[in-house]
């Protein structure tokens, strides 16, 4: 349980963001026919929904813009006051509606604007990732990162990495196919 309790682990990027939960991956292999709704030049592009806390990650993304850093245009950021505001339902909804990956990003543990919000995010993330893996979603499709307001390069790298990690997985069709 210690890994799930708040304030445990290193204050830097916690290990949970990097590793994956060791459950069988049932994600269907990429199919030859890409989703037509998300193509560019006839080529399928990953579509990623990001939830960014207003105080750290959103500010980090702003700084990336101010610094004119270039990164793939695959992520759309939803601004929330705190990563602790991200209800698991939002994540499920994004996957249900066909997002290929979801990122939840907030302040570094210990730096939460509201003191403790991201500790809850960290715990929730672990549980969510297990649930999603169990449901057959590749854990690489759901990630959490701690990006501070000054870490513009990190924001750029995270978006780039996530896009490249998701690309070989192909479109998320899990829910699309079951939805009436």
């Amino acid at each position: 349980m210690s890994a799930l309790s708040p304030k445990s682990g290193s204050p830097a990027d916690c290990a949970v963001t990097e590793g994956h939960v060791g459950l069988p991956v049932l994600d269907p292999p990429p199919t030859a026919a890409p989703d037509t709704g998300k193509t560019k030049n006839g080529e399928w592009q990953p579509y990623i929904v990001g939830f960014a806390c207003n105080w750290c990650t959103y500010a980090g993304a702003d700084l990336a813009g101010l610094s004119r850093m270039q990164y793939p245009p695959n992520m759309r950021l939803v601004r929330v006051p705190c990563s602790g505001r991200v209800n698991p339902q939002f994540v499920l909804r994004a996957f249900q509606k066909g997002a290929d990956a979801v990122l939840v990003a907030g302040c570094h543990p210990g730096d939460c604007h509201y003191g403790t919000g991201n500790y809850f995010t960290r715990r929730r993330f672990l549980l969510m990732q297990r649930l999603l893996t169990f449901m057959g979603v590749d854990p690489r499709r759901f990630q959490a990162r701690w990006i501070s307001g000054s870490e513009a390069p990190k924001f750029r790298d995270v978006v780039t990495e996530l896009t490249e990690q998701v690309r070989p997985l192909g479109p998320n069709r899990l829910w699309r196919e079951v939805e009436p």
């Binding site: 006051p81 705190c82 602790g84 505001r85 991200v86 209800n87 698991p88 509201y114 919000g117």
Partner: peptide, 8 residues
């Protein structure tokens, strides 16, 4: 302060 922790 509007952090939203309670909503979740």
């Amino acid at each position: 302060q509007g952090c939203g922790a309670c909503t979740v």
